[in-house]
Every structure is written in structure tokens, then in C-alpha cells.
């Protein structure tokens, strides 16, 4: 009896706290977005706030902005990430540690450095002038606080590339360690080795880490808040502005956006989990 309930007792504090704090918060947010437990008084079940959102042009603009900035950043970081990991394979442990520097820096500081580098009067434009490539400050494109979101994308690329690299690195290292010599003895070139052996084996881990990045960049707040414009704004900034700057009556609207964000990121996380599971169960056995 004791042995049976022991693991549940051991897990109870952590699971209980997560249920209470995290899932409790999600549930309370959902209920409030449905018009219940309203802060401004009154409590009646309604889909009104979701209806308001779905017909609101601004909401769809925000959705689209969040979606493509996250999508572009993820695609580019995924490609750069695996290239970085391939480069890391050749470096000693000490050098690998240095690349972890990028993980140490929080997103808002990375965003600030992108501002200092890429604003029109930034360091990059000064260097271009020094090399005679531009003559005036206006010739440098507006990349920061621009309506398209280039600054946001740039920040995410440089923050997420090392993340993906460090996620796929252990798998890559293992593949190269166990298969490179065999493949070379059998006459495979480095490129065909990569295409035929490495890519299929690394794919699940690679896609899973890319999905985690997609979920994060789709919903994160600090970077688009710092490097974006007032309109259009990403869903996270939309939610933040509605929650804090709007009236108390409008808060359910922010919580409705939040619930949609939770569903979208939860879904992406679920697929990532499925992929990484397939990789850890089947993938490791053969080698």
C-alpha cells in the first residue's frame, strides 16, 4: 500500500502547485473571458468577447503579424541552428561553452542590442558609411520599430539559432561518433553522409526544437513590445495593451486572446512532444 501511493505523494507538491498556479490561472482566465467572475461586477456566460475578436480586423492583423514573424524567425533559425551545431562538432568543449553565452542573455537585452546595431543611426549603418556604401542616414533601411517586424525577426534569429543548435547538438554528436567512419569506409562523401544518414536521424529532434521555438516566438511579449510598432502589434502585445491600458470592462478581451494563445502554443508543444518521443523510443535503439 505504502509503496503504491509513495510516488504519488512524492509528485503531489510539484504537480499540485503547477495545477493550482498554472492551470488554475489558465482556467480562471478562460472563465473570465467567457464573462464569468467579472472584475467589473456581474457574471453571465457569454461568447461575446470571442465574437468581438473574430470580427475585429485589428485582431486578424495581429494574428497574421505574430504568425509570420514567428514563422520566418523559426525557419531561418532552424537552418542556421543546424549549421551552427555542425560547426560546434569541431570545436573543443571550451569553445562550445562560449557559444552558450547567447543563452545567458535575456531576450529583451538581445532586442536592445539589435536596436543599437540596426536602427538607422546604429552601428551597422555607421560601418556601411565608413566603407562608403551609404552616404546619408536615410539610405539605411528602417529595420527597427518597422511595421513589417524585421527587428523582431532579427532578434529572434540570433536568440533561437543557438537554442536549436544546442538542442540538436547531442544527437548530431552521437550520429557522427557512431556512423561517420562506417559511412566513409563504405565510400560515402561528407555531403551524402549528411543527406542519407544524418538528416533522417536528426530530423525528429530538429523539428521538435523548431516547434518549441515557433510556439515561443508566436506568443512571446518582450521583443515585439520593444522592437515593434503600435499598429499592427503582435497578439501578446495586443493582449498586454488591452489588459493594462484598457478599461476593466475590456479585460475579458485580453483574456480571450490569451486563451487562444494558450491553445495554439499547447497544440504546437503537443506535436513537438510526439515527435521527440518517437525519436527517443525508436531512434536510440538501433544505434
Amino acid at each position: 500500500m505504502w509503496l503504491k501511493i509513495r510516488p504519488y505523494l512524492l509528485l503531489m507538491p510539484a504537480v499540485g502547485l503547477t495545477l493550482l498556479l498554472f492551470f488554475g490561472g489558465l482556467a480562471l482566465g478562460l472563465l473570465q473571458s467567457l464573462g464569468l467572475f467579472s472584475i467589473s461586477g456581474g457574471s453571465s456566460f457569454t461568447f461575446e468577447w470571442y465574437q468581438t475578436l473574430l470580427v475585429d480586423q485589428a485582431f486578424w492583423k495581429s494574428f497574421w503579424l505574430s504568425f509570420y514573424t514567428a514563422g520566418i524567425s523559426t525557419l531561418i533559425s532552424a537552418v542556421l541552428g543546424i549549421l551552427t551545431a555542425l560547426g560546434l562538432l569541431r570545436l573543443s568543449y571550451k569553445w562550445q561553452r562560449m557559444t552558450q553565452f547567447a543563452l545567458l542573455v535575456p531576450h529583451f537585452i538581445a532586442g536592445y542590442v539589435v536596436i543599437l546595431l540596426f536602427m538607422q543611426s546604429g552601428w551597422v549603418s555607421r560601418w556601411l558609411h565608413a566603407f562608403g556604401l551609404i552616404d546619408s542616414i536615410e539610405q539605411f533601411p528602417i529595420l527597427v520599430n518597422d511595421p513589417f517586424g524585421w527587428g523582431v525577426i532579427l532578434t529572434y534569429i540570433w536568440k533561437e539559432t543557438p537554442f536549436i543548435a544546442l538542442m540538436v547538438y547531442p544527437v548530431l554528436a552521437r550520429i557522427y561518433q557512431s556512423w561517420l567512419e562506417v559511412a566513409q569506409t563504405l565510400g560515402a562523401s561528407r555531403l551524402s553522409f549528411f543527406r542519407e544518414i544524418v538528416l533522417p536521424l536528426v530530423l525528429p529532434a530538429w523539428l521538435a526544437s523548431a516547434l518549441i521555438v515557433l510556439a515561443f516566438t508566436f506568443s512571446a511579449f518582450e521583443v515585439p513590445y520593444l522592437l515593434g510598432v503600435t499598429f499592427p502589434e503582435t497578439l501578446s502585445v495586443f493582449s498586454y495593451q488591452t489588459y493594462l491600458s484598457g478599461s476593466l470592462e475590456e479585460r475579458p478581451l485580453a483574456l480571450a486572446v490569451n486563451f487562444l494563445l494558450a491553445v495554439a502554443t499547447g497544440f504546437l508543444g503537443w506535436i513537438a512532444y510526439q515527435w521527440s518521443k518517437r525519436w527517443s523510443v525508436q531512434g536510440w535503439k538501433g544505434w
Binding site: 489558465l26 518549441i212 489588459y243 490569451n258 486563451f259 499547447g266
Partner: peptide
């Protein structure tokens, strides 16, 4: 779950 669902979402609730 809190690794993928942003914590601010739950915290606002």
C-alpha cells in the same frame, strides 16, 4: 506545460 504555454497567459488569469 509551462515550457510551451507562456506563463504570462496564466498569470493574467
Amino acid at each position: 506545460a509551462p515550457l510551451v504555454i507562456p506563463p504570462f497567459v496564466s498569470l493574467m488569469g
